[in-house]
Design a protein around this nucleic acid. Structure first.
Lengths: 198, 198, 198, 198
DNA sequence: TATGAATGAGTCTTCATTCAT
DNA sequence: GATGAATGAAGACTCATTCAT
């Protein structure tokens, strides 16, 4: 693996372990197995490096959710949503600490913003993707016509997001099974009544 | 106002303006109108000061939501929920940046956690309070019996929380009116069908 | 002596010993007997400190030359000029290395310039002061009327300046006696014919 | 042009633009259109490269002045001196910043000194060359016998040198015409009385 | 010979904290 | 309790130089 990539991964690793504010170039270089100077052969500044790390965080979930559009009309809506929500919940658990950290450095946030807005990759895009899927399923007659796709997407992803935020904030752990149970609760109480095959 | 209080407010002000990571004792002292040394006559350390600032952030919403229990059976459920959600949304807008910032300093987060867990004031308590209210309204027959109070609370507050997070993250502004519209959407599409008077 | 003054003198000392480009904050702090951090309690930056050191270099000769005006008509012109030129030559020897160094840092030179131009203390002022004295002596009838004061001042100070520059550049030493001999040469060959009492 | 020469010219260009202390190997390589590594295929070190650049600065004027000896008895003394002084003044304007810069790096100056002293090319040699010319003209009867050639050379070149130093130090510009006027002043007020054809 | 990634020593600067007054 | 000068550890970043290709 080339050094640039190693540096990016080292930076992500240190940020996750020590927190954004406690991440030093020295630590990053140590984990990457190179000198501090080398960091600057690949990134203009520490902030620039962070920006590249952050940039790598957003797309994963988004690309999964974009792929949802291909599943319209396939499998069951419930299964599709369950899979999506479990993936989202897991992703939120992973990304919430780093994503949230950025609020501690408004300058970094501002530059990060410029980037993801220009690339149309903001975190809000996930909700749009799920809403688009729901919309298609409503039109396909697989969900009741009263369904408001955007509101349902916001409710489901919002619940998962806040849930992950709270778990991380409280320093708890959640097993994969617990995550699935959480999603199952949402589906049973909220989504099932919206399914057309009721 | 005594100096201790002035320091606390100055710290909060600087954190909001510059971000947690860019908040220095020098800036705090300057805004508080005292010397840096004075900070240490009132707080053991900068972290200690931050902890006191953070402690002051959580309770406001919680105490409002706790008061909800007194409104069971009074007014309409819709009105009660609307008021609560608007207040919550506004509070999330205000507090998300500072609350999220803490993820950048795991040590600070850990100590903060010890505190709010000991005082039973964690951010997750807001959802519990709303769930308790909903539970009471279900029992009072003002909501359909299929309502799962905790899930509904998580969906509603989760949507508001993530919405505020996204707005702040994208650096946008939202007027009070837009906030009310957002809440109204949630109510119309999701809550109304759950009201027993339908 | 207060720390600020000690830092200024330490900086000057290190610049003289190691050269402007090889002067580090570490060395300055060490000579001043304080920590590097203390430098920044008294000066905004290393450049700012250098600016204050430089500012202290220009005025000494200038103030001596300004005092010349009081000697018009007193003593002999030759004696007055001799004293002035010896002082100037000695001063040039002392100041040429540091003054010249500044050309290596155009940014520092630019800021230095702003300062001395605003205070009307530039190095060219020395020539103006001597010219003013000569003009007065011409008008007092103690020098031949053909004397062009500004040209004579430029020739005499220019010769001394370049002489000092060459000596320093070649790393030679010049005793006080040799300096006096150099000045005496200038007086005998050039100034004497201009004196009215010839 | 070969790379070695391109590097030398690039180095000179960067030094003139950014100052000696702000000249980096990176900048030099960029201007020379080669890699930093290539610098070290042609020069032992950055200091070595600078030494070669400096070495190229001194001889130009000197060789012109050495050629003066051929003009003894030809043209008029006034014309010869005027041409020489204008060339010298222009040269001083050009070279003073770089030459002076070297005082900021005593180690570089010391090595430079070794070189030009061994080659008998020091800056003081210019004055010797002019003095030799004047001496010849005195002996040729074209200047009054009281003329002290070395003193006259020091006065004239000293005035020009200091004038150029002041102009550069004050960041001013001087047109060719102004330079000629300055020299003309020196000639009219000082040299003319020394010419034998008066 | 030309390269350019990698280096690591060195530099300036920041900042939370202390302590004598 | 209030001060603010002094601290020194730690930080990000620069840069001349090396070396494998």
């Amino acid at each position: 693996m080339n050094l640039r990539q190693r540096i990016l991964e080292a930076a992500e690793q240190v940020i996750r372990a020590n927190g954004l504010a406690r991440t030093t170039t020295k630590d990053i270089a140590h984990i990457a197995g190179c000198s501090e100077g080398s960091l600057y052969n690949h990134f203009r500044s520490k902030e620039d490096l962070f920006l590249h790390v952050l940039r790598g965080q957003l797309p994963p979930l988004l690309s999964i959710l974009m792929a949802l559009s291909k599943r319209v009309g396939q499998g069951t809506v419930r299964e599709n949503l369950k899979e999506v929500l479990v993936v989202a919940l897991e992703y939120f658990h992973d990304s919430v600490p780093m994503l949230s950290s950025v609020f501690s450095e408004p300058g970094l946030l501002a530059r990060h913003r410029e980037g993801f807005l220009a690339r149309n990759e903001g975190p809000h895009r996930t909700n749009e993707a799920v809403a688009a899927y729901l919309d298609a399923e409503v039109k396909a007659g697989r969900m009741v016509p009263e369904t408001n796709p955007r509101v349902v997407a916001d409710l489901l992803l919002g619940a998962c997001f806040q849930h992950a935020f709270h778990i991380q904030f409280c320093g708890e752990n959640e097993t994969r099974e617990e995550q699935e149970q959480y999603v199952e609760q949402l589906l049973s109480s909220f989504v099932d009544p919206l399914l057309a095959d009721g």
